[in-house]
């Protein structure tokens, strides 16, 4: 089943890293959408209710990850789509706040391909358990 993912991160380097990760193993062949900032990311999320997982960077200028989550929560946008907040070490506070505004899980940098793969597996599990199509 072709899966699709959304990456919201202001770093081009991270985009390339994700590209690399999503081209390997059982993730190969999936569709990955890329957004470079919070607003663009939000619009893309709104356009793709079928996403398996959203990877949302915390630290972005203008609209950061927490703000994206807060808006999504306020507007009840696709609550079934799991969003993982990507943080850097030392952001425990932000992670807690993330959960409060609807983050499903978090991922700490530096991460490895295996971390993404594990995250995707859990996201798929969530989907199955919810019985989504």
């Amino acid at each position: 089943m072709p899966e699709s993912f959304l990456v919201i991160d202001d770093s081009k380097l991270l985009h390339q890293m994700y590209r690399l990760i999503f081209s390997q193993g059982d993730l190969a062949g999936s569709t990955v959408h890329y957004a470079a900032n919070g607003r663009e990311g939000y619009a893309m999320l709104a356009a793709h209710p079928e996403l398996t997982l959203v990877l949302l960077d915390l630290n972005m200028p203008e609209m950061n990850g927490l703000e994206v989550l807060a808006r999504r929560q306020a507007e009840h946008l696709y609550p079934h789509v799991p969003v993982a907040l990507v943080t850097t070490e030392g952001s425990e506070e932000d992670e807690a706040r993330g959960r409060a505004v609807g983050a499903w899980d978090y991922l700490r940098k530096p991460f490895q391909p295996s971390d993404i793969q594990a995250l995707v597996r859990r996201a798929r599990e969530l989907r199955r358990s919810r019985g989504a199509a």
Binding site: S11, L14, N59, T88, P110
Partner: peptide, 14 residues
């Protein structure tokens, strides 16, 4: 903010 980004990216790259 910039330092945070550099930190994260450098960490990713090892």
């Amino acid at each position: 903010g910039r330092l945070h980004t550099i930190k994260g990216n450098s960490a990713m790259m090892g």
